[in-house]
């Protein structure tokens, strides 16, 4: 199957690959997977405690080109947004941006899940702190 130029770009030159300190109170970690294809995706965010702005985001994905591109794009998009703004990102936005074909829609779902899981983890940490 032919990948779109944007997928290829993110795949060959992924942004924000890596990891953040999982133990930090400012970091939220989301680990999600799609059993049908065996993909796993880890996405981490670092949130400024004052402004609630996501200052940094990292990911590591084991999966197909579309899964890697979707998570790479997700980290680009969440950076600079507040937590609440980041929750507005929909998988369909990712599909549109990357022109994903129907068989690859689950990759975009996975990326949205990863964002939400990371934010959920961060929120839980804030409650535990309080």
């Amino acid at each position: 199957m032919a990948y779109s130029d944007k997928v290829l770009d993110h795949y060959t030159n992924p942004r924000n690959v890596g990891s953040l300190d999982k133990a930090s109170a400012e970091v939220g970690t989301g680990l999600v997977g799609a059993p049908e294809c065996g993909d796993v995706m880890k996405l981490q965010i670092k949130v400024n405690p004052e402004t609630k702005i996501i200052e940094d985001a990292k990911f590591k994905t084991f999966g197909c080109g579309s899964a890697i591109a979707s998570s790479s794009l997700a980290t680009e998009w969440v950076k600079g947004k507040t937590v609440d703004e980041a929750l507005e990102i929909k998988n369909t936005d990712i599909v549109k941006e990357l022109s994903l074909p129907p068989v690859k829609i689950h990759c975009s779902v996975l990326a949205e899940d990863a964002i939400r899981a990371a934010i959920g983890d961060w929120k839980k940490k804030q409650q535990d702190e309080a």
Partner: peptide
């Protein structure tokens, strides 16, 4: 699985809850 995963994500988004991973 794919359809159910997508629907679960949409539900979690609308309700502001956490999606249960499969």
């Amino acid at each position: 699985l794919e359809e159910q995963s997508k629907t679960a994500t949409e539900t979690a988004r609308a309700a502001g809850t956490q999606k249960k991973q499969m």
